[in-house]
């Protein structure tokens, strides 16, 4: 067969496979939204879950997911910015920097279940935090730190060195220059990375089943004192998240409408991921345009 014919066949095959890729995503999205959205109602989103009977909601799990997300981002954002600054601005080419980079590489490739078990051992048991929001937030921090740090480092590196020289030549310290000049300029990239990281954290379950726990005790939404046991803000209460909930009801099988609830919860989870994804892009572009003054 001549080479022109091969060329045509190969191109055809490639078109087909690329089409399959799109079909897979379309199937996943349609399946989840088609099956899930009919179950999503205000009642579903706000009422607590039920076992052994149908009609339960995901209200507490949804709240837990957001609370856990915010808490873990509060811990991981400052650390990742500090470490990102160190790697992009201060790290010299030596064994110490190599050690740091290797550590971050290893941490980012660890299975999240291993991170979860480490969190279980150290935060829940050794530190005595038990199955709690705080344990979960710390585990998620461990899970999220390497990617956030790399993102901060890359965003800072993308800013031209001439900006650093400008700051230094004015008698500012390196730290001031980075904090007040380089970080603001790198902000679109940093924020995009943070939002994508948040999306990842929002859907994570394996790191949480043994840290934040698999139960969602009822919450008293009238008492916001963080020290009150049923307070939504109490960081020491167990908190099953939405993603953990989906896993749990499917593997336990004691909820009669588990597949409907899972579908609804999955739809909510997917929509959240979509929002995080598009939000990251939109916010990043928006800040970039605002900062560079191009309208």
């Amino acid at each position: 067969m001549d080479s022109k014919k091969w060329d045509k066949i190969a191109t055809g095959v490639l078109y087909f496979i690329a089409g399959v890729m799109i079909l897979i995503l379309a199937f996943l999205l349609i399946f989840i939204l088609w099956n899930g959205l009919p179950h999503v109602s205000w009642h579903f989103l706000t009422s607590p879950a039920k076992s052994f009977q149908s009609g339960g909601g995901i209200g507490i799990q949804l709240f837990n997911s957001f609370y856990l997300l915010i808490l873990s981002m509060l811990i991981s954002i400052p650390i990742s910015i500090g470490a990102g600054i160190y790697l992009s601005e201060y790290a010299k080419k030596n064994w110490l920097t190599n050690l740091v980079r290797t550590s971050i590489d290893i941490l980012s490739s660890l299975p999240s279940i291993v991170v979860g078990l480490f969190g279980f051992l150290v935060f829940s048991i050794s530190a005595g935090l038990g199955f709690s929001i705080l344990s979960g937030a710390l585990a998620l921090t461990v899970f999220n730190l390497p990617l956030l740090t790399r993102n901060v480092e890359e965003s800072l590196r993308s800013i031209s060195g001439s900006q650093r020289e400008a700051g230094l030549a004015l008698g500012l310290s390196k730290w001031e220059t980075v904090l007040k000049i380089i970080i603001p300029e790198a902000l679109p990239g940093i924020i995009t990375g943070m939002i994508l990281g948040a999306g990842r954290v929002f859907g994570e379950a394996a790191a949480l089943i043994y840290t934040a726990g698999q139960s969602a005790p009822p919450l008293d939404f009238t008492n916001w004192n963080p020290f009150y046991i049923a307070s939504p803000l109490n960081p020491l209460r167990p908190a099953e998240t939405l993603a953990v909930h989906i896993w749990k009801i499917n593997s336990e099988g004691i909820m009669p409408d588990a597949s409907q609830v899972s579908a609804g919860a999955s739809a909510v989870l997917i929509i959240a991921v979509l929002i995080f994804n598009f939000g990251a892009r939109y916010v990043g572009n928006h800040i970039y345009r605002k900062m560079t003054g191009t309208k």
Partner: peptide, 23 residues
């Protein structure tokens, strides 16, 4: 401020390395 900055950023990095080692 430079001294403080070096310490802060180094501590943040050390936290990550410590986590990996302790895992």
């Amino acid at each position: 401020s430079e001294f403080r900055g070096r310490i802060i950023s180094f501590v943040c990095t050390a936290i990550i390395v410590t986590v990996v080692v302790s895992i």
